[in-house]
């Protein structure tokens, strides 16, 4: 019951936060020194007042800014995010098109980051100060420090261009058509179609961008998992378990890991939010038709509805992820639940 109350409270808070984000982003976009009319109409079109007027009316730019804001909020409450000035499609349609691509890549990346990050963290903690530990720590520092765009170009150059063992940019090879959209995740939709070659192709296309995106979060997870595990390993109950002769692997997996994982979960949650929000460069380099690429193109064209739509989506993601992480805390650690 308490948990239900907690979730309802968080959901209500989320609505208020989203309205706040919408307000801030709306007025920020209006502060940008540029005019969407001049950004999207040609000089010759701008010379014709009728064309300019028709354009302004079409996108509601003929009204005072505050009126535009009220209309935007009214439409937002009706889940209408407006129409893209750049593509002439509704923002909901655009986000619906882009989000599955981003989500599929982000989920793949976070799984890679979590699995390998925790694995490396455990190895590193178990072999503390050994060569393996030093190696893992060096890798994790590299993962955290390498600029994503540079790493992306590098892996593309080597694995796709030079070695030709990985597919190039995009979500699917040209020999395959996009699977019929059920979830929007090409891997899952290909499986639903029963097309295994297409599934494998989609999965292969996830590897390079997924690996690049995972590098940063994986580094963080490795470091957090290692340091937390070392902390837990120095506690009294672990010492007692050791004294009772519990084998090392069993001690780690059954006694230490659960407690060490709680902060790691926070890192995974935040990392996932970062992945969803920080894909602009990676999606552009890998020609991944996701939210990041849409955001980049919207900013370039001063497409206000597009920019606000993406901002809201990213904010919503963060809020949902944080809520899920809070709930998961309780599942992993009963002490958190009782608090």
């Amino acid at each position: 019951m308490d948990r239900l109350k907690f979730i309802v409270k968080r959901l209500a808070f989320m609505v208020v936060m989203l309205l706040g984000v919408a307000t801030i982003v709306f007025f920020l976009t209006k502060l940008v020194p540029g005019d969407p009319v001049t950004a999207n109409l040609s000089q010759r079109a701008l010379n014709d007042p009728e064309i300019v007027e028709a354009y302004k009316i079409k996108y509601g730019l003929d009204k005072p800014v505050f009126m535009q804001y009220l209309l935007y909020i009214r439409n937002l409450l009706r889940l209408d995010l407006g129409t893209s000035i750049r593509t002439n499609k509704t923002i909901m349609w655009e986000l619906g098109r882009c989000f599955p691509a981003t989500a599929e890549l982000a989920i793949f990346s976070i799984i890679l980051a979590a699995v390998f990050g925790i694995f490396f963290g455990i190895i590193s903690a178990m072999k503390r100060n050994s060569i393996i530990d030093q190696l893992v720590r060096a890798i994790s520092v590299c993962g955290v420090s390498i600029p994503g765009f540079w790493f992306a170009l590098l892996v593309l150059f080597f694995f796709y261009y030079k070695l030709q063992i990985m597919p190039g940019p995009g979500r699917l090879s040209t020999a395959f058509s996009s699977p019929e959209a059920v979830t929007g995740f090409f891997t899952i939709d290909a499986l639903i179609e029963g097309d295994i070659p297409k599934f494998l192709d989609a999965l292969k296309h996830l590897i390079l961008p997924g690996f690049v995106l995972a590098a940063f979060t994986m580094g963080l997870i490795t470091r957090t998992a290692r340091s937390n595990l070392l902390d837990v390993l120095s506690t009294d109950y672990i010492r007692t378990a050791k004294a009772k002769g519990t084998p090392g692997r069993r001690m780690i997996m059954h006694h230490a890991l659960g407690n060490a994982l709680i902060p790691v979960l926070t890192v995974i949650g935040l990392g996932f939010g970062n992945l969803l929000g920080g894909m602009v460069l990676i999606e552009t380099i890998f020609n991944w038709p996701g939210v990041g690429q849409f955001a980049y193109n919207s900013v370039k064209a001063l497409d206000y509805p597009g920019v606000i739509g993406v901002s809201l989506l990213i904010a919503l993601n963060y809020m949902i992820i944080n809520t899920v992480v809070d709930i998961l805390y309780g599942l992993i650690d009963p002490r958190v639940r009782t608090k």
Partner: peptide, 10 residues
Amino acid sequence: GSGSSGGDAT
């Protein structure tokens, strides 16, 4: 299975 993406496509 990533020996050659082009191969699979072909």
